[in-house]
Write a protein that binds this DNA or RNA. Structure first.
Length: 423
RNA sequence: GUGGGUGUAGCUCAGUUAUGGUUAGAGCACCAGAUUGUGGCUCUGGGGGUCGUGGGUUCAAGUCCCAUCACCCACCCCA
C-alpha cells in the first residue's frame, strides 16, 4: 500500500514544535488586547469574486495563485489567499460600522496560495494581522505600525527594519502614473519583459522591480512622494512626524509600493535580515477605497499582515525561546499487578487538582518507567509497589535532587499541590 | 513557469568521483543488561535499511547509464 503524503507546500506542526505556536499566538493576543483590537474569524473559503475585486485582477495572487474550485452546486469558491478582503466583507455584511464608528479588528488565520514553495514560503501559511476600520487619521496609521512592532518587541525579535512610503490616493495617483510613464517611455525597451508588461497595466510597480538594470533605470525616476497632492502630503508628513514622536526609527523607501492594488497613501514593510530571500516579515498600509470596491459604504481603513512562519524563523535564528517545552509534574511508577489497579485513580485525583500527571501505559519495567519519567522531565515520581500498598504510602522521588521520601496516601495530594504551586 | 541542489537506519550524515567486488557504516535516538523495586553519567549487548522509484549495462550496482518521482534552495511574486 502506498504511503499517503501531505500536500506540497504544507506542514505538519508536530508536538515538539506546536508549543512554540501556542506561545506566539498568546503573545499576539496579549498585545492585540493591550492595543484594544478584537478578534474576527472568517471562513476559510469565500466566493472567488471577493478576492478578484478586492485584491485586483492583475496581481499574481489573483491571476495565478488562488486555490479556486467549484462546489457541488457549481458555485465558484476560493480558499482565502489573504485576510483583508474577508475582514472588509464581514465588516460590511455584519454592519459593524453601525454598531460603532471605529472598529479595531485582529486575526490569526491560515491562508492558501499555490506558489512554488521555498524558505519562508508555503502553500498553506499563517498570518496574524490587524485592521482599523473607520478612521482616516494618520494616528491610525501610526498606531498600526506601532502595534506590529510591539508584537515583535514582546517576542524579543531584534534588528528589524521599518520601511515606509506613500502611494498617494485617487487624486494624485493618476497624474503621477502619467508622469512616471513619460519618464520611462524613452527607455522602455531597456526594461525587463515584466516591466514592459507592467508599463500599461500598473506602471507604479515597475519601481519595485528587483532586476538590476531596471533598478539602475529607476534611479532618476520621479518619486510618488514628490508628486503627492496636498492632502496626501500632509497625511504622510503627519505619519512621519508622529513616528518620530514615538521614537520609532524608519527609512523612507520611495520604491516601496506593495503588491496588492488596494493600497492608498501610507504603505509600510518590516523586514528581517535573519530570513534569507523572503525577508519581508510584515507588510501593510492604508486602503481607503477597498470597502467601496467591495460594494460597501466608503470606509477609510489601515492594516497590516505578518507571516507567522517567518516570525518563527526569525525567532529561531536569533535563538529566542518561544514558550517552554511542557514539563511533567508527576509520573506514577507502578510495580506489580495489584499496584497497577490503583494508578489511574491517583492520576485522576492529581489531575483534578491541576497537577500535570502521567503513568506508564506499556507495562514496562520499573527501570523503564523511571527512564520515561526522566525523559518527560518529571519533577516528582510516585512509586507504588506492594510495600507501599501495605503501608498506605507512596515513595516519592524528587527527581532534581535525587532524594526520596515517603508520604502517606492521605497527605500525598496536598503535598504535591503545595510543592508544585510553590514553584 | 524557469534555473540549481539533494534523496543511504527514527534523525544528522559518511560511503557514490578518473578507481563497481564478500555480511552497507558512524553519531544521536530506541530497547535490554551491568544495578532481579529506582532516571540522568559510564560500560556491554541488541533491534532496525526495498541505499527515493522503475528499467538497463555487468559474472557482480548504493556506486555506471536512462527515465521518473519527491523534497530543498533560488528567480518571479509575496507574509
Amino acid at each position: 500500500m502506498k504511503q499517503l503524503k501531505r500536500i506540497k507546500g504544507t506542514q505538519d506542526i508536530l508536538p515538539e514544535e506546536s508549543y512554540k505556536w501556542t506561545a506566539l499566538e498568546q503573545a499576539i493576543r496579549r498585545v492585540m488586547l493591550l492595543y484594544n483590537f478584537y478578534e474576527l474569524r472568517t471562513p476559510v473559503f469565500e466566493q472567488t469574486e471577493l478576492f478578484a475585486r478586492g485584491i485586483g485582477q492583475l496581481t499574481d495572487i489573483v491571476s495565478k495563485e488562488m486555490y479556486t474550485f467549484l462546489d457541488r452546486s457549481k458555485k465558484q469558491l476560493t480558499l482565502k489567499p489573504e485576510m483583508t478582503a474577508p475582514i472588509i466583507r464581514a465588516y460590511l455584511e455584519n454592519k459593524l460600522y453601525a454598531k460603532t464608528p471605529l472598529n479595531k479588528i485582529y486575526y490569526i488565520a491560515p491562508l492558501f496560495r499555490q506558489e512554488n514553495p521555498q524558505a519562508g514560503r508555503l502553500r498553506q501559511f499563517h498570518q496574524f494581522g490587524a485592521e482599523t476600520l473607520g478612521s482616516a487619521g494618520s494616528e491610525a496609521d501610526v498606531e498600526m505600525i506601532d502595534l506590529a512592532l510591539a508584537v515583535y518587541e514582546r517576542l524579543g525579535i531584534k534588528n528589524l527594519k521599518l520601511l515606509i512610503n506613500s502611494v498617494g490616493d485617487s487624486t494624485c495617483r493618476i497624474p503621477y502614473k502619467k508622469t512616471l510613464q513619460e519618464y520611462i517611455k524613452p527607455n522602455l525597451d531597456k526594461y525587463c519583459a515584466d516591466c514592459q508588461r507592467r508599463f500599461h497595466e500598473n506602471p507604479i510597480r515597475i519601481l519595485d522591480c528587483k532586476n538590476e538594470t531596471c533598478i539602475q533605470l529607476n534611479q532618476q525616476a520621479p518619486k510618488i512622494s514628490e508628486c503627492l497632492c496636498d492632502d496626501c502630503q500632509t497625511h504622510f508628513d503627519q505619519v512621519k512626524l508622529q513616528l518620530r514622536q514615538l521614537n520609532i526609527p524608519f527609512k523612507e523607501d520611495p520604491c516601496l509600493v506593495r503588491g496588492l492594488d488596494y493600497y492608498t497613501r501610507t504603505v509600510f514593510e518590516i523586514t528581517s535580515d535573519a530570513l534569507g530571500a523572503q525577508n519581508s516579515i510584515c507588510g501593510g498600509g492604508r486602503y481607503d477605497l477597498l470597502a467601496e470596491e467591495l460594494g460597501g459604504m466608503p470606509t477609510p481603513a489601515v492594516g497590516f499582515a505578518a507571516g507567522i512562519e517567518r516570525t518563527l524563523m526569525a525567532a529561531e535564528k536569533q535563538n529566542i525561546q518561544l514558550g517552554q517545552p511542557p514539563r511533567l509534574d508527576v509520573f506514577i511508577v507502578s510495580l506489580g499487578d495489584e499496584a497497577k489497579k490503583h494508578t489511574l485513580f491517583w492520576l485522576k485525583s492529581l489531575r483534578a487538582k491541576g497537577v500535570h500527571a502521567e503513568q506508564d501505559f506499556l507495562g514496562r519495567s520499573v527501570k523503564a518507567q523511571m527512564r520515561e519519567a526522566n525523559r518527560q522531565n518529571a519533577r516528582f515520581v510516585l512509586l507504588l509497589g506492594e510495600n507501599e500498598l501495605k503501608e498506605k504510602v507512596f515513595s516519592v522521588k524528587i527527581m532534581d535532587q535525587s532524594k526520596q521520601v515517603e508520604i502517606s496516601f492521605n497527605d500525598i495530594i496536598d503535598f504535591l499541590v503545595k510543592q508544585i504551586i510553590d514553584n
